[in-house]
Design a protein around this nucleic acid. Structure first.
Length: 438
DNA sequence: CATTCGTGGTT
DNA sequence: TAACCAAGAAT
């Protein structure tokens, strides 16, 4: 018998063993999770979106609240967008919420609110990629489609001793073919969930529980003594540091006791969420003042003044300035930037505190300052194509009269936190601020 | 293909 | 404690 044929035979037996044992293990050991109550495709869909890059324990309360509020695709499709985002507050990766609702609207418009039992149609839904397509098709419809997530790549890398870098997209494609070939006839949903369940409960990233593993006997990674070095995964780039200067701006008169907040842009980081007004203070050194990016209107005059101040009090970025001096410089820069960028005139009254917030690719050091609201500058209208004639800082700072904010700003009290969706970094600051007033 | 998108738990 | 990483998709 040729060596190649023999190898294939061994592999086939190990594969059959794997599929059978894993399926039986899952049926006996599966967790009782809210999205396993039934196989409603919409419920499966919502759970899979929430579970993207997010732990089961974190998702559970969000899932319960979400399904109570939006029990069907039609209910989600017809909801106001801010309401959906608010229910997602704190869960992260907020574009998932928007994409999920966009998908629900597709399902309502194209399929009468019923998630179609059709791989291509499901895959075409907004926010549904290769993994989620396989998960919905297999779990909800029991179709024999692979659903390869991080768990599955880890489990199969170990079981078959695969040494490809699972951080590479091409590796996932290969593992999908393998995973698809392992699906037992008629049990796609249970098998795929079993694969992930094993990764979550036994074949964990560090210190895998080989002694209790249902497929330990034929695990090639373990037999090769490589269970601890598999899967191979190249390291991610470390997040870049950013210093953010934020303002707690208090109002007077009808806005007495309230704070000024604003809504973020439609796209990008924390899209459409609410936040304290803040500006980027570039360069790692917490106090340094430098040109801000993307053609933002910062006049040369202002930059020269700031740079002069910086070079005087902060020689060679060695932090020669005292903490108080640095805070004074930052408050000054923040005030000028809010004026120049937003037409928002405030009077800084002191440093309030700082906090660190880690995103996947950025680390924010947030320096928070208190300030009192002054007025909105009435900025001159700009004719199209005359961006190069934007006002200088001195002109922009000149009071043209009472104006209105350019972006979406609101005055809020503590009770209004329940209406708007804030990212956690600002939830913490605002909670501490209002708590400190008591 | 590499980067951009949050947050919190685990080791 | 710093690193790692979790039921990924869009660009």
């Amino acid at each position: 018998m040729p060596a190649g044929e023999d190898e294939r035979k061994v592999k086939t037996e190990a594969s059959r063993y794997f599929s059978t044992e894993l399926l039986n293990w899952y049926l006996a050991n599966k967790r009782d999770l809210p999205w396993r109550k039934n196989r409603d495709p919409y419920r499966v869909w919502v759970s899979e979106i929430m579970l993207q890059q997010t732990r089961v324990d974190t998702v559970i309360p969000y899932y319960e609240r979400f399904m109570e509020k939006f029990p069907t695709a039609a209910a989600l499709a017809e909801a106001p967008e801010p309401e959906v985002l608010k229910l997602w507050e704190g869960l992260g990766y907020y574009s998932r919420a928007r994409n999920l609702q966009a998908g629900a609207r597709e399902v309502l418009a194209l399929y009468g609110g019923i998630v179609p039992d059709d791989k291509d149609k499901v895959a075409a839904l907004r926010g549904v990629g290769p993994y989620t397509t396989g998960a919905i098709m297999s779990i909800a419809f029991n179709r024999p489609e692979p659903a390869v997530d991080g768990n599955v790549m880890r489990v199969l890398s170990r079981y078959f001793c695969l040494e490809e870098d699972i951080a590479k997209p091409a590796t996932r494609v290969g593992i999908e073919k393998l995973a698809g070939s392992l699906i037992p006839e008629g049990s796609a949903g249970d098998f795929n969930q079993g694969l992930m369940e094993l990764g979550a409960l036994v074949c964990t990233p560090k210190s895998p529980g080989c002694l209790t593993c249902p497929v330990m006997m034929h695990c090639e990674g373990r037999m090769a003594g490589k269970e601890h070095i598999l899967p191979i995964k190249s390291k991610a780039k470390p997040p870049r540091p950013e210093t953010r200067l934020a303002a707690l701006i208090t109002g007077s008169g009808e806005h007495e006791g309230k704070l000024l907040v604003r809504q973020r842009p439609e796209t990008g980081l924390l899209a459409q969420m609410w936040e304290l007004p803040h500006v980027l203070a570039e360069s790692g050194a917490a106090g340094s003042v430098k040109r801000r990016g993307r053609g933002k209107v910062v006049s040369a005059e202002l930059e020269i003044a700031a740079a002069a101040a910086a070079s005087e009090s902060m020689p060679a970025d060695q932090g020669g300035a005292s903490l108080m001096e640095r805070h004074a410089m930052q408050a000054d820069y923040l005030t000028r930037a809010l004026s120049s960028d937003e037409g928002l005139l405030v009077r800084p009254t002191g440093w309030w505190g700082e906090t660190e917030h880690v995103f996947s690719h950025i680390v924010w050091n947030v320096q928070v300052f208190r300030a009192e609201f002054g007025f909105w500058q009435q900025l001159p209208e700009l004719a199209p194509g005359t961006e190069s004639e934007l006002p200088t800082a001195a002109e922009a700072a000149a009071p043209y009269g009472e104006g209105v904010p350019r972006a979406n700003y609101r005055w809020i009290g503590p009770e209004q936190m329940k209406e708007l969706a804030f990212p956690n970094v600002f939830v913490r600051i605002l909670r501490d601020y209002w708590h400190g007033l008591d």
